[in-house]
């Protein structure tokens, strides 16, 4: 474990009554740096939480916002649950796929974009909803997406996802 991670780990462990509670925030911290949850991060997390690597991986794999392999820097997630679909998410999905040239769960070869269709984002009142690196965009039309895409193309968010 790097000294930085060790420091963070002890901070996180101190924050909760049970050291296991530090598992998710620690993995988020590692992902913010590495871009995804590496096997090293799984082993480190298991060590600080006092569980086996298998258990740590089981927990990590439950969460769709923890990535088990490298993904594009811009993580674009479009809701595919009922309210959004009724409000045109299927059209939006088709548009996004076409613009990015990516299928569900794929990353662009240059490592800049990742696209995923996800379950309910809890923004049914302003459907369809699109999430970009944890930031919600509401009532998104294909035109809105084109505008957003231009912005993202001009920016480099680094590999990171916000840690918390």
């Amino acid at each position: 474990m790097t000294p930085e991670r060790e420091r963070r780990a002890s901070e996180l462990v101190a924050r909760y009554p049970e050291s296991q509670s530090a598992l998710i925030p620690f993995l988020q911290f590692c992902q913010a740096h590495d871009g995804y949850v590496t096997q090293q991060a799984i082993h480190d997390a298991a060590e600080i939480a006092g569980i086996t690597p298998g258990e740590a991986e089981s927990i990590a794999s439950f969460y769709t916002l923890l990535f088990k392999e490298p993904v594009g820097k811009h993580k674009i997630q479009v809701c595919r649950t009922l309210s959004c679909m009724l409000r045109g998410a299927d059209e939006l999905q088709q548009h996004v796929r076409q613009r990015l040239g990516l299928g569900n769960g794929e990353s662009s070869p240059d490592g800049r974009f990742y696209y995923e269709e996800v379950e309910c984002l809890a923004a049914c009142d302003r459907a369809p909803c699109l999430q970009h690196n944890l930031e919600f965009h509401y009532d998104v039309t294909p035109e809105d997406f084109d505008r957003l895409l231009d912005e993202w193309r001009a920016s480099d968010p680094g590999v990171s996802m916000p840690a918390e």
Binding site: Q39, I42, T52, P53, G54, A56, E57, S61, F62
Partner: peptide, 20 residues
């Protein structure tokens, strides 16, 4: 008490698995 066999993923995507 060995905890090497676990369930990965969730819902109907769940899989019986081991670490990595």
């Amino acid at each position: 008490q060995e905890r090497n066999l676990v369930v990965n993923e969730r819902g109907h995507h769940s899989l019986i698995a081991t670490a990595d």
